[in-house]
């Protein structure tokens, strides 16, 4: 089947010689969900802005449903819907007025807009608040309206730029449900996210983006397969206990255990054998774990393997990074940790 979205060697250089995109290529088959996965500042939003004709690339080309975004921007704008992390809906208008405005700017006949508004409002559970200004809305409601607005024109291609960033877990789950329904309807979706779980759940194919480059591409399962079969995850009562456990475990299967908060993580190809060996070593040191799990690797583990960093850390979890690094240092040279 034809590719609905194509990006070929996209380059974008911002002021100060920041290469936001440094030769990004990917293709999204029609009717599938494609995830662009990466930390803040990786270049995901820049790619979406180029594909939605808002930004001109400095190099490379891109097309939506066969139309070049730089040469035929006006045609391309009629083909897609866009919903973004900023939920760019009008605060002072009601949900109904927002949908009507977007419908009219898509040049839909009034009657058609009228027919579509109510079903969209009820589909996104906004009918009770439909005639209230958005100022009274929760973050989740705004995102749902943003998504509804992107669908008024019934686009064949949908760009979702970090659709759930900043949402509480329940709103995120709700929105995932809505997006999954859309996909069953046959819409092609390009989704950007810094949540590995999100890409894993929604996307059929994923490109991992880091510093303006695609560093890996494939199905979530393929990406996970590059990581070794399993990850052993041992929960301890606190981070000190976790560091002690990591020391007690030492190297297993030639891999160093990683301390993340009060967890010890260990990638393992022969999961069950390593698990038994790990339990023996912990027992010898008199350490009793709170939890002991042998799980499939997550995309976060993939990111760690590909870049040496956790994917979600750069954004708002610098503290977590500091914690992890401190943990690593301590496990390597326990004297410094003890001295402090």
């Amino acid at each position: 089947m034809a590719d609905a979205i194509e990006a070929r060697d996209l380059v974008k250089v911002y002021k100060g010689d920041v290469r936001a995109l440094d030769g990004v290529s990917f293709a999204v088959e029609e009717g599938t969900v494609f995830g662009l996965l990466g930390p803040n500042g990786a270049g995901k939003t820049t790619a979406v802005r180029i594909l939605t004709t808002v930004l001109r690339p400095d190099g490379g080309s891109a097309s939506v449903l066969g139309h070049d975004v730089a040469k035929e921007p006006e045609v391309v704008r009629g083909l897609f819907g866009l919903a973004g992390q900023y939920a760019a809906v009008d605060e002072n208008l009601t949900a109904r007025e927002n949908l009507r405005m977007i419908g009219r700017l898509n040049h839909l006949p009034r009657a058609v807009i009228g027919e579509r508004t109510d079903p969209l409002l009820s589909q996104f559970q906004l009918e009770d608040a439909a005639d209230r200004p958005l100022k009274t809305y929760s973050g989740g409601m705004r995102r749902r309206l943003d998504l509804a607005a992107a669908l008024v024109a019934r686009p064949r291609v949908l760009f979702l730029d970090e659709p759930t960033t900043g949402l509480d877990p329940q709103s995120r789950l709700d929105l995932w449900g809505v997006i999954e329904e859309l996909v069953h309807g046959g819409t092609t979706v390009l989704l950007t996210t810094q949540y590995l779980e999100e890409a894993d759940r929604l996307a059929e194919r994923v490109a991992v983006v880091d510093h303006g480059r695609v560093i890996s591409q494939g199905t979530p399962a393929e990406l996970k397969a590059r990581m070794g079969a399993t990850v052993l995850e041992i929960g301890l009562s606190d981070s000190e206990a976790a560091k002690a456990a990591a020391l007690a475990l030492g190297r297993l299967e030639d891999k160093e255990p990683q301390v993340v908060g009060n967890l010890v993580e260990l990638p393992a190809d022969r999961g069950s054998q390593i698990a038994m060996e790990a339990l023996r070593r912990l027992d010898q040191s008199g350490i009793v774990p709170v939890s002991f799990t042998l799980r499939e690797p997550s995309l976060d583990d993939v990111f760690l393997a590909l870049t040496g960093r956790h994917a979600e850390i750069e954004a708002d979890e610098e503290q977590a990074l500091a914690r992890t690094q401190a943990g690593n240092r301590t496990s390597a040279t326990s004297a410094t940790g003890g001295a402090r």
């Binding site: 898509n106 040049h107 589909q123 019934r154 064949r156 859309l182 309807g185």
Partner: peptide, 28 residues
């Protein structure tokens, strides 16, 4: 969901000439 994505209309192509002006006025 079929209500939203069930029928896919042909791509909207931006018009030329007077129709284009009518669109611009309607957008304004």
């Amino acid at each position: 969901m079929s209500t939203v994505a069930g029928t896919i209309p042909p791509a909207v192509v931006s018009p030329r000439g007077p129709a284009r002006l009518r669109w611009a006025i309607s957008d304004i």
